[in-house]
Design a protein around this nucleic acid. Structure first.
Lengths: 318, 318
DNA sequence: CGCCATATTGCAATCGTTTGTATGAAAGGC
DNA sequence: GCCTTTCATACAAACGATTGCAATATGGCG
């Protein structure tokens, strides 16, 4: 009864006699013995762990709290757990140039999923050049080397612009930082839609995602923009919900005086008063696409990027 | 230049001559060599990984999406990352009796944090009997063996009851499942507060946390309760926000006709229209307490359970 | 009873590090 | 010039599993 036999018995190998196997399994059960996964995985050269990484390049104060990220994380967790993988969660502030290489090279992971590209496009491209099992949620740029899954943010911004103008808005504010590719494209889509209608370019205001400063910022922006504004396109639903709150404080009636469109369609977006009109990213489908692409790449196949079409969900704010 | 010297050089050991060290480090840099963490951790018998586990006993459909969990997870991630630990995230549906033992016995973890006890009190007690570095968020029962950090849910329920009655409510509905200890205690606190005022016991309605059914359920409950209801205590802020929405749909004015109190004080609670009155759990402090207790236990000390005092945050719904 | 085929079990190498100890080389004192 | 002390590097044993291959037990058959 040495380690080899025990190992085989617990793995239910046919090489071990049936009653020895039973005896060993009973003993293991009784003593609560479980094989050390660290050793097993070292030997197998396969860790069964997928890294789920949230890069916070521009938003050092953000606490993983955005409901969009979280819903995404929930779906990813479902899909990965179902396939027998564990999840290593990293909330990374990319202060060194090789943060992604450090994660990849640790030998702890069979694959990496990035939730959002932040402002780290270059770093991701660099890593993807020599590391295959890597899939990022976010924008797609023609010619990029890494595999990305996301919605067409430009189209989403365009949809929002169309709805706002159709609802009668003429002077529109965009709430969100345009430095990150995803949100920058939403902004660009909005600009294009307005231009197509012969309307002036939107005002643009930076908004930080940290909840304690967001309301103050939005409040200041809207005060500054003053009476001009009759439409708001928020870069995320959380921003839109806060904007709704600020507008209510200032006595503005939504959607009669100001129209509001959000982005993401998080579950709570349907529960605001009034209900939020927003551009929907299908998170469940997106998560599944990411996991599928990752598994294909782990298996050595060559999964291509996916760009999904966003849909406008028309409710009561525009 | 064998493995031993390389290992020491990369660890910046003083046993290696300075220029050899420099040469090795340069070479490692050039070839992008990084020590395999699996092997390192196996050897060190210390994984540097903390398991963050969300048991979903009663809520199989929940997708880790509750903002309270997520905010908590964000703070935990901050604190653990700061101390050099990695995070292994598990969303567990406890279908077998030894789910927690399986996690603990894997040899992959230096400690375990449970976010919520769900209905798994017994399983947690059993595991805590022989495994020290385990801390759970949730209720505290006198005589329990496992280390828990949480707020006094009974006191929180009492506070909500006090506020609702002070605001004029007489016939109160509780929205939430009372099977899990935490929410059960909130319900008990509410009942006690009402009884102290000589008021009848509240109505109680089960609500599932899955977003797609929640609105329908709450809508049905409120329709069923009919005109009787002039106060609502929701087991979480997300439930409260949905209740606000449902009440608006039915033309009920909050807080004049119906008073509403939530629980948690998630960031978005301050952004609803009208702003939500709620019982605050200080998530940041709670997360820090959990991590402190865990580190103490990892170090072999004996950290006691912590029960924090909830605070009523009075806004505009009650 | 002996031999061979087959069913079980044990040996030992391996995964990639870390670290105690031994060995070798350079340097310093007499 | 030789012996001792120090410094730098190499050797080898862990960590705890898995797995190819060798060794032994078992059984059937002549």
């Amino acid at each position: 009864m040495n380690t080899a036999t025990v190992s085989r018995a617990l793995a239910d190998s046919p090489l071990v006699k049936t009653d020895t196997k039973a005896r060993i399994q009973a003993l293991a059960q009784a003593h609560g013995f479980r094989p050390n996964q660290m050793a097993r995985r070292l030997r197998a050269q396969r860790t069964g762990v997928i890294g789920v990484v949230v890069p916070l390049g521009h938003e050092k104060r953000q606490h993983l709290s955005d409901p969009f990220f979280m819903t995404m994380l929930g779906h990813l967790a479902d899909a990965l757990t179902e396939n027998g993988y564990d999840i290593m969660l990293s909330r990374v502030i990319p202060d060194t140039a090789d943060w992604l290489e450090a994660i990849i090279g640790s030998g702890m992971l069979d694959g990496v999923l990035l939730i959002g590209q932040s402002d780290q496009f270059e770093a991701i491209e660099r890593a993807a050049a020599h590391y295959r099992p890597l899939v990022a949620w976010g924008s797609h740029w023609s010619g990029q080397r890494h595999c990305s899954v996301g919605t067409d943010n430009f189209a989403g911004g365009w949809l929002a612009g169309e709805r706002l103008t159709a609802a009668g808005a003429r002077r529109i504010a965009f709430l969100g930082e345009v430095r990150t590719p995803e949100i920058g494209q939403r902004h660009a889509g909005l600009c294009a839609a307005l231009q197509a209608q012969g309307l002036p370019a939107p005002l643009q205001f930076d908004v930080h995602l940290a909840s304690d400063v967001m309301e103050r910022e939005i409040s200041a922006h809207i005060a500054q923009a003053g009476e001009d504004i009759d439409g708001v396109f928020a870069a995320s639903d959380v921003i839109a919900m806060t904007a709704l709150r600020v507008l209510a404080d200032r006595g503005k009636v939504v959607p009669d005086q100001v129209r509001v469109v959000g982005y993401d369609d998080i579950p709570l977006a349907a529960q605001t008063v009034p209900r939020l009109t927003t551009v929907r990213q299908d998170i469940a489908t997106g998560a599944k696409a990411m996991v599928d692409a990752l598994f294909a790449r782990i298996a050595g196949e060559d999964a291509a990027s996916v760009q999904m079409i966003p849909v406008l969900v028309r409710r009561d704010t525009a």
